[in-house]
Structure formats: C-alpha cells, structure tokens
Amino acid sequence: MVTTRARHAGRPGPRRHTRRDLAVLGVLLGLPILLDLALIWGPTLASVGLSFTTWDGVGDIKGAGLDNYRNLFTDYPPFWPAVRHNLLWLAFLGLLAAPFGLLLAVLIDRGVRFSRFYQSTLYLPVVLSLAVVGFIAQLILSRDQGALNAVIGGKDPTDWLGDPGLNIWMVLLAACWRHTGYVMILYLAGLKSVDPGLKEAAALDGASERQAFFRVVLPTLRPVNVIVGVITVIESLRAFDIVYAVNKGRNGLELLSVLVTDNIIGEAGRIGFGSAIAVVLLLVSLGFIVTYLVQELRGEQQR
C-alpha cells in the first residue's frame, strides 16, 4: 500500500484538453450536475420558498411570512423534543456506536479465527428494511407479548416502548445495533490497509499495543474517521425509519424527519409548515457540512 500512495507535490496538472475531452467532460459532468440540481437542489430551494407560505397541497399557495417558523418554535409541542432527540441520536451514534464499531474492528483485525462469521453477523442488521426492524422491536420489547419481559418476569412488566421516558433509549439501542456493523466494516477495511511496518516500528520503540494504536494506527485512519463522521452525521440527522416503524415517531420518539413526514407526506397537507421544519433540519445539516468542509480543507493543506 505504501508504494501506491499518491504524492501531491502541488504542481498543476497538465491542462491540454482536446475538443473530444471537453465533450466527454461536458456530457458526463453535465448530466450528474443537472440531475443533482434539478432533482435535489431545485426542490430544496423550492422547499425553502414554501416554508414562507401555507399550502395544503391542493389549493392556492398563500404567503405566510414567518408565521410557520413562529408557530414551530412556540406552539408545536413535538418540535423541541424532536430537536433534542436528533442531537441525542448524534451523540449516541457518535460516542457509542462508532467507537464500539472501531473496537470490534480492531479485535477482528487482530487475526482471530472465524472473522468472516463475525463480520457477517455484525453487518447483518445493516441490510434490514423498515418492516423487519419494526417487527423485531415489537417482538422483543412489547410489554405484554415481548421476549424481554418474558425473560425478566415480574408482576409489573416494564413498558419498554410505551413509556416516553424509556422508549427513546430502546430505540437508540436499536439504532446502535444497525450503526455498529456499518462502522465496523469501514474501520476493518481501514485497519487492513495500515502499514504493518508502522506498528512493528512502534513496537520496537517499546510502545504497548494500546499506545501503538492511539499514536500510530488511529492517526493513519484519518480518512476513515472522516467517512465515519460524515456517515454518522447523515444517519443521525436523517434518522427516521426505526422510530417510524416502532410507533410512527410519537409519544417520546419524535424526530425532525418524522415531523416533516407527518406534515408533508401524509393526508395532512401542511406543506408550508412541514417545509419550515425541513429548513431547520437543512440549517443544522449545513452547520455540520461547513465544519466538515473546514476540516477537509485543513487536511488538504497539511498534505
């Protein structure tokens, strides 16, 4: 891997494009850019516009100024819980699932037997669809019929999914269950490409395995860290399917994307209001993107 490493010496690449080159570039860059602008950014900007209106999706669109935002911040009870839950989600995945995935990757990477089996098993939750996750939650956590209460027993069974102070933690566990395998696979791949010579050199210097990991291995994993970081942010802010499968994201399981769905997708036609929620979500996302951008540029300069 060492030999395949790119060396950026900072010299500008040759820029002699023929007409054919320009045609290829024009078509193959133009098409995805067009798709992205027409189907992603166009609708996004349209949503921003709609957030200043009231519209039920059928009749006329009426301007509403900042009313949607005012109502959202003051008179929409699920809003602040949803914001809280999204941030909690981010913290949970970032501080628990991601490190746990890294730990599993490190253990498997040390060359244990049956690594294929472990990898497959731990990755399996990633491929599950919404219906399965919802059912599994019911299967295990249902108060009356679930497996967990059957194992615990007791006279007053715990209401894992119905207690609004408790269910968010159960759902976060389920989210970790899915996220860990994802992160593990990414790190596993990253670890396999770490130059073993580095570790050996560290070992010769008398560093313990742990020291070697934190001083030598982890820094070389920076690109993986960036990918994992971005994926974790995406998954946390877009989180939707688990809570939706459990109870449609109500009663303690509010998330921003669920509120957007409730107002925009369903029979409820509060498109302007739902768009306002989406804009808030967009701003939060952009905050993270800018942070990422800054970090990335800094990394670029270091190279």
Partner: peptide
C-alpha cells in the same frame, strides 16, 4: 389497562 401507549389494540383485545 396501564401503558396504553406501548400496546397495540391487538394486544389489548387479546387480554
């Protein structure tokens, strides 16, 4: 019945 928000109507009817 306690814990209604965590129980489907199906489970309720089952009782």
């Amino acid at each position: 019945q306690k814990g209604a928000n965590g129980r489907t109507w199906q489970e309720a009817a089952q009782t």
